[in-house]
């Protein structure tokens, strides 16, 4: 049996809104932005779950709160059978060895004054893995693995001397050097050019297999997610609206939002006639969320009943869940 590495239950992240002081005095209940609302999912060993949605859907907030870079409001997060929600400072610091994150902008995630060799060695020092001598060896070996060759030369280079793709390779190397069980990748390929993007995707795919990693692959690009992920969850305004195995999601998308997302990916073929479903308007402000189904203000198939439904995920069979009870 394959174990679940990550189990997230009823994760909530509410951000309090700033109010003028008079309203703070008068109002009893503080208004909040429900960035992530009652999210549950799990990721198995060696499995990648894609988290796809537009900006403002809360996907980055999910990625950051499940590794406690920001504190979740409530919910349970089990990584490697440890509930990390209640861990205190030192315990949490030690647990971080098991989970790492790759951010979108590699230039911003590398210290410009540190050689990349030192940057990648840093996690080993923090977690006290190996001796100073073996540490350097480990870094060099990993550099060879992520194709930063000649590795001895790269060890002494600074981030500014590298191209975007190479920098992202460094960040990937740093994320896996502590041998983690779980990696969050937050739009890691969004800033890269087309000819390089696939190289980095390929590297992530290989690393995932070799280290048998659980992966949370956050992206706005369904097409990139297809190559990496076994399953994909589609998010809209803090809720998962659909989750299914990748092939199933592409062949039988159920939720109207998923269909819209699919139809709006530009296809590099002038003769490709696709069925265009264009929604009304843009993602509403999360401070003023629609009642009932959160997507109903833009949904082309909206009905009256949509004002009253809860967005509960219903099972359509084989682990394909969707939050739209009407659409067939």
């Amino acid at each position: 049996m394959i174990n679940n590495v990550v189990v997230v239950k009823n994760l909530k992240k509410y951000f309090p809104l700033k109010l003028p002081w008079l309203e703070v005095v008068l109002k009893k209940e503080k208004p909040v932005v429900k960035a992530v609302d009652e999210l549950s999912f799990s990721i198995k060993e060696g499995e990648a779950l894609g988290l796809v949605g537009e900006s403002g859907s809360g996907k980055t907030t999910v990625g950051r709160s499940i590794i406690r870079l920001i504190e979740p409001t409530s919910g349970d997060i089990e990584i490697n059978n440890t509930n990390i929600v209640n861990l205190k400072n030192e315990q949490l610091r030690q647990a971080r060895k098991e989970f790492q994150i790759i951010f979108q902008d590699p230039m911003a995630s590398l210290n410009p004054y540190m050689t990349i060799g030192k940057s990648v060695m840093h996690p080993l020092e923090i977690h006290n893995i190996g001796t100073p001598k073996t540490r350097k060896e480990m870094v060099l070996e990993l550099f060879r693995r992520v194709n930063l060759i000649p590795e001895k030369e790269f060890f002494n280079r600074y981030p500014r001397q590298l191209s975007g793709g190479q920098r992202q390779r460094v960040v990937i190397a740093r994320a896996i050097i502590t041998n983690p069980k779980f990696i969050v990748s937050d739009e890691a390929t969004a800033m890269l050019d087309v000819s390089v993007r696939s190289q980095v995707l390929q590297l992530m795919l290989e690393i995932k297999k070799e280290y048998n990693l659980a992966f949370l692959f956050i992206t706005h690009d369904l097409a990139s997610a297809k190559y990496i992920c076994e399953r994909i969850a589609v998010m809209y305004l803090g809720k998962i609206v659909e989750i299914a195995a990748t092939r199933e999601l592409f062949e039988n998308p159920h939720h109207p939002y998923t269909k819209i997302l699919m139809s709006s990916i530009p296809v590099p073929d002038p003769n490709f006639k696709k069925e265009k479903i264009i929604p009304k308007g843009e993602i509403p402000s999360p401070t003023n969320m629609p009642t009932g189904c959160r997507f109903r203000t833009r949904c082309p198939y909206v009905k009256k009943e949509c004002e009253e439904i809860d967005m509960n995920l219903e099972d359509l069979g084989d682990g394909h869940l969707s939050a739209c009870p009407f659409f067939k």
Binding site: S198, T246, F250, P268
Partner: peptide
């Protein structure tokens, strides 16, 4: 030719990642 092939596409039966080796 290579650039067109390396664009991630949404065809589910095409799972091969193609890229242009090297850099600018």
């Amino acid at each position: 030719q290579l650039l067109l092939k390396s664009v991630p596409n949404i065809k589910i039966d095409d799972m091969e990642l193609r890229y242009i080796p090297g850099s600018l």
